[in-house]
Amino acid sequence: CQLQSQVLKEISVLARIMARRNVLITGCSSGIGLALAVKMAKDEQKRFKVYATMRNLAKKEPLEEAAGHRLGKTLEIKQLDVCDEQSIKTCVNSIPDRRIDVLVSNAGMGLIGPIECQTIDEMKTVMDTNFFGLVRLLKEILPDMKRRKSGHIVIISSVMGIQGILFNDVYAASKFAVEGFCESLAIQALKFKLQLSLIEPGPVVTEFERKVFEDGMKMDLSAADEETAEMFTNIYLKNYKQIFQSLGQSAEDVAEIILAENPPFRHQTNTLYTPMTTLKYADPNGDLPIDIFYKMVFQHDKIFSASLNFIKLLRWRSRKSFDLGKPSQ
């Protein structure tokens, strides 16, 4: 009886291991990718085996520390550069049977500022990472999922894939491309019984956003006219930090939402930001959101600033106010 009990236990453990879903996540050196990788690796039901990837393995220490004793068990760290097809292929080939049940396309980069001050090469790099990076991943992984008729593709998009924002022209363009691509692909995915989910965060307080902000502060504005340069410095950058302090989510908040059962095709994670994106659907002509954003920025900036401060106060009282990059104590 003891032998039979032991065998049953071992079979049960083996069954759980076999039932685990292999999850490949890109961009795990910080932010949403790191938070999601750790969250899934520490799942109490042990449903996932996480392959957390990053372009530069020299930046893996924060993930290793966060993973703790799960490292090497339910979480493995691998090198993957979404801008390099061979890097993607090597990573996927290193996974047993190349089986990826859940792909989370999270790696990305930002770019803010007047387009006169950005080079075409910088713009191409953003598009290559944010859009073609996703395309490269799917060209390698999608055929296996289609053959098995099983898989879930999760794409970290942005509210700026729905609505463009001042001085985010190129970043918004890359996310618009992602949204259109996935909207088209979702129809085909249904035929192969695949799930496809677009996660659309609003402002998320991460190292990603901190770097974008710092790069914007250091930008050479000499190629822009005086009025545009002043607009970027004294209106956009001035409000950037305040918006994140008032409306910002944590990476952990977004990670919680991704783990939800049966997520919809599109999911905006930040309810505080939803009224702004709703404007786009309220007017098919597109004039309403542009007019309202223009008035908020240039005519009613004091009311806008006061509103952000009020939201920040409410969130501070509920212990959910953030500084750019770190939760406030």
Rank of each mutant, 00 (worst) to 15 (best):
C1W: 03
C1P: 05
C1R: 02
Q2T: 02
Q2W: 01
Q2F: 00
L3W: 07
Q4K: 05
Q4W: 04
S5K: 06
S5M: 07
Q6W: 10
Q6L: 06
V7H: 11
V7T: 14
V7P: 13
V7L: 13
L8A: 09
K9M: 07
K9T: 03
K9G: 08
E10P: 02
E10M: 11
E10Y: 12
E10I: 11
I11N: 05
I11D: 08
S12F: 09
V13E: 12
V13Q: 05
V13G: 09
V13M: 12
V13W: 07
L14F: 14
L14N: 15
A15M: 06
A15Y: 11
A15V: 13
R16T: 15
I17S: 04
I17W: 08
I17F: 09
M18F: 11
M18T: 13
M18W: 12
A19T: 04
R20S: 11
R20T: 14
R20Y: 12
R21I: 02
R21Q: 04
N22G: 11
N22I: 12
V23G: 08
L24R: 05
L24I: 14
L24G: 14
I25P: 01
I25M: 00
I25Q: 02
I25N: 01
T26C: 11
G27H: 04
C28Y: 00
S29R: 04
S29P: 00
S29M: 10
S29F: 07
S30G: 04
S30Y: 05
S30Q: 07
G31N: 01
G31I: 03
G31D: 00
G31S: 00
I32L: 06
I32E: 01
G33P: 03
G33S: 01
L34M: 01
A35T: 03
L36E: 02
A37Y: 08
A37G: 10
K39T: 10
A41G: 01
A41I: 05
A41H: 10
K42G: 11
K42P: 07
D43K: 11
D43G: 09
D43T: 12
E44C: 07
E44V: 08
Q45A: 14
K46T: 15
K46G: 10
R47N: 15
R47F: 14
R47D: 15
K49R: 15
K49P: 02
K49C: 15
K49H: 15
V50M: 14
V50L: 14
V50N: 12
Y51G: 02
Y51D: 02
A52D: 02
A52L: 06
A52T: 04
T53I: 06
T53W: 03
T53S: 07
M54F: 13
M54A: 05
R55G: 08
R55C: 13
N56S: 11
L57R: 00
L57D: 02
L57Y: 08
